[in-house]
Simulated scan of single mutants.
Amino acid sequence: MHFAITSEQERSLLAADGDKVGEFLEELEESRENDALTVDTDKAWDAIHRCLTDGTLDPDGGAYPWSHAVLGGRHLSVDWYVVYVSAAEVRDVAGALRTVDRTWLRRRFDAIDRRDYDGARDDEDFEYTWNNFVDVQTFYERAAAAARSVIFTAT
């Protein structure tokens, strides 16, 4: 799940450590005040990250700013993915995602190594990935317009 967070939430999150990060996330999930500033990609985040980067789940793989759409950024937990992207980086990511079209994403999707990816990597899996990618594109546009930072979370 991606969340566009307020400046106040950003300060709280960046000041948190260990269990406090988990508590922050619980509160954030319970208090989603604006669904336009959240997006749930279910399991598609895996393929989306791979398509936007070097085909792996390496958070440092691929080029900035595409790498920061899902797993790239500042990691705030060692137990699960809690990845922070600053408001300035969100603007960069939104701009980069604008350049991605269906044909480009399909080419990248088809290049994912089958041995390293648990998805089906068929037409249905691509449609699922594409539809969720479009949601991520829209989400980053809204987050950038609102000058918000973003966190991505997954267990």
Rank of each mutant, 00 (worst) to 15 (best):
H2N: 10
F3P: 05
F3C: 03
S7N: 13
S7H: 12
S7R: 14
E8Q: 14
E8M: 03
E8Y: 07
R11T: 14
S12K: 14
L14A: 09
D17C: 00
D17A: 09
V21N: 03
V21E: 03
V21S: 03
E23N: 08
E23A: 12
E23F: 02
F24A: 04
L25A: 07
E26I: 04
E26P: 00
E26V: 09
L28G: 06
E29Q: 12
E29H: 10
S31K: 15
S31Y: 02
E33M: 04
D35G: 00
A36S: 13
A36T: 07
L37I: 02
V39K: 06
V39R: 09
D40Y: 15
D40R: 14
A44V: 12
W45F: 15
W45H: 14
A47P: 07
I48S: 08
T53P: 04
G55C: 03
G55E: 04
T56G: 02
D58E: 06
P59E: 05
P59Q: 07
G62T: 10
A63S: 13
Y64E: 11
Y64C: 05
P65S: 07
W66H: 13
S67P: 01
S67D: 05
S67Q: 14
S67Y: 01
H68M: 00
L71D: 01
L71M: 09
L71E: 00
G72T: 12
G73C: 08
R74N: 02
H75I: 06
L76W: 02
D79R: 15
W80P: 00
Y81D: 12
V82T: 11
V82A: 06
V82Y: 00
V85M: 04
A87L: 01
V90D: 01
V90M: 01
R91S: 09
D92N: 14
A94S: 15
L97G: 11
L97N: 10
R98Q: 13
D101G: 13
D101R: 07
D101M: 01
D101V: 02
T103N: 06
L105V: 02
R107M: 00
F109C: 05
F109N: 09
F109R: 08
D110F: 10
I112A: 12
I112P: 12
D113M: 08
D113F: 08
D116H: 11
Y117I: 00
D122W: 06
D125N: 11
F126N: 08
F126E: 05
Y128I: 02
T129R: 02
W130Y: 03
F133R: 08
V134H: 03
V134I: 10
D135V: 00
V136G: 01
F139E: 05
E141C: 00
A143L: 08
A143G: 08
A145D: 14
A145N: 10
A146V: 08
R148K: 14
S149D: 04
S149H: 06
S149N: 06
F152V: 07
T155V: 04
T155Y: 10
